[in-house]
Write a protein that binds this DNA or RNA. Structure first.
Lengths: 114, 114
DNA sequence: CGGTATACCTTTAGCTACGAGGTATAGCTT
DNA sequence: AAGCTATACCTCGTAGCTAAAGGTATACCG
């Protein structure tokens, strides 16, 4: 099945979006392209993933959307709220925890206790 | 919902199980305890997670199970197969990729391209 | 005028982690 | 003897989230 990124992806789209929007306002299509770039092509997320997450973040109050017309096309810009910043740092901390726990376990020096 | 570890958990139970079983044969209940230990308490996985994954890995040929009676209790020991070893290294590589991509993006030095 | 790029969006499917619950034995404590 | 805790296995249902596919519309280039 879906074999673009596989496993290890849960929660990651949200974290990436919050990371990018912490820096500056961006719109959906732009976020899709940026994610590919800032992860060094390691992670590619389609629009079908990005838009639903953006909408959910808006509903939960982490983001605020504003429509802006540029060259006849309508862009929906997202801006991070205070709640969003809080959520971002919480998720980032959780990511650190999981990551270091897993890396500790994967370390060949770590031996499995009896 | 389920707030023991939250997000970032997809694929991780499988990777941890394979990591532990790469070292030596173990049984389910033991694996549950070991995971807590080797991750420095960062990750705790319940039996409801472990058993289904073990069964799936067995079905797919990554593990081979053997029942062994110890002190009147029956333990099901799992041993990694060649296919399992292969799957382990593939997953580990994928984890590296996702991890470094995400960390690159999270690095404050990384600036979002315009 | 047709194709490609931009820009938005929804629906459906499917995986999988997780909690709750269920069985059974062994051993310790009261 | 009764009851609790620990060991050891297991299943089912829910719910969250990713992902692919498909759908609309405008702008620009040849």
């Amino acid at each position: 099945m879906g074999q673009t990124n596989p496993p290890f992806m849960s929660g990651i789209p949200e974290l990436l979006l919050l990371r990018l929007l912490a820096q500056r306002d961006m719109y959906g299509y732009e976020l899709v392209r940026s994610i590919r770039l800032v992860t060094g092509e390691a992670i590619t997320l389609g629009e079908g993933v990005i838009y639903p997450v953006l909408h959910a973040l808006e509903r939960s109050g982490a983001l605020k959307a504003t429509r802006k017309a540029v060259d006849g096309r309508t862009r929906v810009y997202y801006r991070m709220t205070a709640a969003g910043r809080k959520r971002f740092s919480r998720l980032q901390g959780e990511w650190q925890r999981i990551q270091s726990g897993l890396n500790m376990a994967l370390d060949p020096e770590t031996d499995v206790p009896t």
